[in-house]
Amino acid sequence: DETGKFLVLALYDYQEKSPREVTAKKGDILTLLNSTNKDWWKVEVNGRQGFVPAAYVKFL
């Protein structure tokens, strides 16, 4: 159920650099879980949760 969740689009490829991050490919649609940090947003992609740089994604 996606009610109340926001989707964001990956603008660039991002390769995770730590276990707390997730890899995303340009064009991926990610479920935004938390955007309270202006630099790192928590997302879910391909069943995995983790952080990506906020500058790499935008709201749909």
Results as ranks from 00 to 15, higher is better:
K25P: 02
E16G: 15
K26T: 07
Y12D: 06
L60S: 04
W41T: 01
T31H: 09
K38T: 10
D28G: 04
D39S: 10
Y56G: 04
L33A: 02
V8H: 04
K38E: 10
N34Y: 08
G4P: 14
D1R: 12
E2V: 14
F6P: 10
G50E: 01
L11P: 01
P19D: 12
N37Q: 08
K25T: 07
A54M: 05
V8D: 00
F51W: 14
S35L: 07
E21N: 04
V57D: 00
A24P: 02
W41S: 00
V22C: 09
I29K: 04
P53K: 07
L60A: 05
A24V: 15
Y14F: 07
G47R: 02
E44L: 08
K17S: 10
G50Q: 02
L7S: 06
N37L: 08
E21I: 06
I29W: 06
V45S: 08
D13M: 08
K38N: 10
G27C: 09
T23E: 02
V45T: 08
L30P: 00
A24S: 04
D1S: 14
E16I: 06
D28N: 06
L9T: 06
R48S: 05
N37F: 07
G27T: 03
L33F: 03
Y12P: 00
D1N: 14
V57S: 00
K17D: 04
G27S: 03
Q49E: 11
V22H: 02
I29S: 02
L30E: 01
K58N: 05
A24I: 15
I29F: 05
L33T: 03
E21L: 07
W40H: 01
K5T: 11
Q15S: 11
K26H: 05
D1Q: 13
D1P: 14
A55D: 08
K42D: 02
V22T: 04
L60G: 02
K17F: 05
E44P: 01
D39T: 13
S35G: 10
K42W: 15
F59C: 15
L30T: 01
V57C: 10
K17M: 11
F59S: 09
L32G: 01
Y14P: 03
V52N: 02
G4N: 11
L9S: 02
E44N: 03
V43P: 00
A10V: 15
N46K: 08
V57M: 12
K42M: 15
I29G: 01
K42C: 15
K17H: 08
P19N: 10
R48D: 02
K26L: 07
L32H: 01
V45M: 06
G4F: 13
Y56I: 15
L30H: 01
L7F: 15
N37V: 05
D1H: 14
G50F: 07
K38C: 12
Y56W: 08
L33K: 03
V52Q: 01
L60V: 11
V52M: 11
V22F: 12
P53T: 07
S18W: 07
D28F: 08
E21W: 09
T36A: 12
L7E: 04
L33M: 05
K38Q: 10
G4R: 14
E16Q: 13
V22P: 03
A24C: 15
F6H: 11
Y14T: 01
E44W: 07
L60F: 11
S35Q: 10
K5V: 12
K42Y: 15
K38F: 07
R48T: 05
T3N: 12
Y12N: 06
D39H: 15
T23W: 06
K26D: 02
L7I: 08
P19Q: 09
E44C: 12
G47W: 05
S18H: 11
T23A: 04
E2Y: 14
W41G: 00
L11W: 07
Q49C: 11
L11V: 08
G50K: 02
T3R: 13
K5Y: 13
F51Q: 01
R48A: 05
N46D: 11
V45K: 07
V57G: 00
L33D: 00
L7D: 01
D39F: 15
Q15Y: 15
L60K: 04
Q15G: 06
T3C: 15
P19F: 10
S18T: 11
F59Q: 08
L11E: 02
G4H: 13
Y14V: 03
N34H: 06
Q15V: 15
E21D: 05
N34K: 05
R48G: 04
T36K: 11
V8Y: 06
G47E: 03
I29H: 03
T3M: 12
G27Q: 02
L9I: 15
N46Y: 07
Y56K: 04
V52K: 02
A24R: 03
E2F: 14
E44A: 07
T31L: 14
I29M: 05
L32D: 00
G50C: 08
A10Q: 06
V52P: 02
F6L: 13
Y56N: 05
R48L: 07
W40F: 05
S35E: 05
W40V: 01
K58P: 01
K25L: 09
T36E: 13
K26G: 04
E2W: 13
V22A: 02
T3A: 12
N34I: 09
A55P: 05
Y56S: 11
L33Q: 01
W40A: 00
V43K: 00
T31A: 07
N37M: 07
A10F: 12
Q49I: 15
K25E: 05
V43H: 01
N46P: 01
K58Y: 10
L30K: 00
Y14A: 02
P53D: 02
G50R: 01
P53Q: 05
L60I: 13
L9K: 06
T31K: 13
F6S: 10
V52I: 15
E44I: 06
D1I: 14
G4I: 13
Y12Q: 11
T23G: 07
D13N: 07
A54Y: 05
A10H: 02
D28W: 11
T3G: 13
L32E: 00
W40E: 01
A55I: 11
F59T: 08
Q15N: 13
W41M: 03
R48K: 10
D28V: 06
E44K: 04
V22Q: 04
D1E: 13
N46H: 09
I29N: 01
T31I: 15
W41H: 01
V8P: 00
L32P: 01
L60T: 05
V57K: 00
E21M: 06
D28I: 08
Y56F: 12
N37S: 09
L7T: 08
W40N: 00
Y12A: 10
N34D: 15
Q15T: 14
Y56E: 00
V57E: 00
K5G: 10
Q15I: 15
S18R: 07
L60Q: 06
K25N: 09
D13C: 12
T23S: 15
G50P: 00
L33W: 05
P19R: 08
N46C: 09
V52A: 02
K38H: 10
W41F: 09
A24G: 03
F59W: 09
W41C: 05
V52E: 01
A10P: 01
K26W: 06
W40K: 00
V8I: 08
S18G: 13
Q49T: 13
D13K: 05
L11Q: 03
S18N: 11
E21V: 04
P19Y: 10
S18Q: 05
F6D: 06
A24Y: 12
L11H: 01
D1W: 14
V22R: 02
V43Y: 02
Y14D: 02
T3P: 13
N46A: 09
T31V: 15
G50H: 03
A54K: 06
A10I: 14
F6Q: 12
A54G: 02
V45W: 05
L32R: 01
A54P: 03
Q49M: 09
A54Q: 03
E16P: 15
R20V: 10
W41L: 06
G47T: 05
F51T: 02
V22M: 06
A55H: 11
K5L: 12
K17W: 05
L7W: 13
R20Y: 14
E44V: 06
N46R: 11
R20H: 13
K38L: 08
R48F: 06
T23M: 04
I29Q: 03
V45Y: 07
K5A: 10
V52T: 01
K17G: 07
K26Y: 06
N37Y: 07
L33S: 01
K25C: 12
K38W: 07
T23R: 04
Y14Q: 01
V45A: 08
D39Y: 15
E16L: 06
V43G: 02
W41D: 00
D1L: 14
V45C: 08
G50T: 02
W41A: 02
G50V: 05
R20A: 11
G4K: 14
